[in-house]
Design a protein around this nucleic acid. Structure first.
Lengths: 188, 188
DNA sequence: GTATAATATATGCAATATCATATATAAAAC
DNA sequence: GTTTTATATATGATATTGCATATATTATAC
């Protein structure tokens, strides 16, 4: 139930609405380690309120739906504190592109290189996004405890994207030098 | 529907049963980029057979359930060929441990270091598993086209685990030198 | 001798995640 | 002037994943 606890964490720092959770938190500050769909966020907020972890202040608006500004209850704070100390399983690796590469021997080098290039573009954009997130580097003396931890999580995202880009470049180099899978070879 | 295509890929290399898909493929050779539960595999095989992508030969056994050895149909082969050329979305990053780190400012350094150490143990084990997979390195002249691609996918897994271990060590160093969040600081 | 692991498939159920769509207004872009 | 974007919440439907359990025999481990 990590999404529940990501929401608890966010709301413990700043109470906000479902809309703000989506646009400011899940699409920005925590996007490098957790994402959530808008519909999932609203439904999860509903469940967490039922479970007594959250409540909200209703801010009446005219012309658009009223804002429900959620914040933690004591039970929510206790649950967050408990969960933060509970060992978590390793992240799951699931990557469709690697299925393609693994089973892609029947593609031409050119087709493989196109797929590699597509992933490279995507990961370069992802890295660029990470590098725009305004948290000072670890050496900065102004970093407080919280922002040091924020920076650490971001640094992992950046390190992995660097590793990916280097690997994608190596893929391109290896594939470019690979003999094609032509008829002579595959039907001896 | 990447699981469908992972199964198509595996069965295109070697026809096998659901049991073998689980124990030999998803728990071993493709585990570094895709995992699947046993129940998910059997249900997916059923769906793919209904859809005409697979058929099976029944091997009657005594004492234990008959083996259903699945292999691709022409439609399955065509679908695999099509999908292998279709650009795939970037992998999703979802990592519960990073939620803990990001929102863990209220934990003591010791508690944080314990969580880091737990992840380190897990990732070191994962890396050790990858390094035992018997595919020759890229320099090996005996590598054919298919095994070169296999090796590339494995190299990414290894590179990312190396990056993670280095990062976890840096986390430990940074956290060890962090002033604790004690009462004086947090309540001025 | 008894317990556990390996072989083999199957289903129920719950949790999680994604996709689509609905409503409604103001502001900004074209 | 019309379209798109931003604000704000909500639900139906589907897809995917994970956990538990059922069955049945042989082989291996203790």
């Amino acid at each position: 139930m990590s999404l529940h606890h990501a929401i608890l964490g966010i709301l413990s720092v700043m109470p906000m609405t479902g809309y703000e959770l989506k646009t400011q938190a899940f699409d920005q500050s925590v996007a490098h380690f957790w994402q959530a769909d808008q519909s999932q966020i609203y439904r999860t907020l509903g469940k967490m309120e039922e479970d007594g972890w959250l409540t909200y202040e209703l801010e009446v608006q005219d012309g658009r739906p009223n804002r429900k500004v959620y914040h933690l209850t004591d039970a929510g704070r206790a649950e967050l504190a408990r969960w933060l100390r509970t060992p978590q399983p390793l992240p799951v690796n699931r990557e469709a592109f690697l299925i393609q590469l693994f089973f892609g021997a029947s593609l031409t080098n050119e087709e493989l290189l196109e797929l590699v290039a597509g992933q490279r573009t995507g990961h370069a954009a992802r890295l660029a996004g990470y590098e725009q997130i305004p948290i000072p580097p670890l050496e900065d003396p102004s970093l407080d405890r919280m922002r040091t931890l924020w920076r650490l999580t971001l640094d992992l995202g950046i390190a992995i994207e660097h590793a990916r880009l280097a690997w994608l470049d190596q893929c391109a180099a290896v594939i470019a030098n690979l003999p094609e899978a032509d008829e002579q070879e595959s039907r001896p």
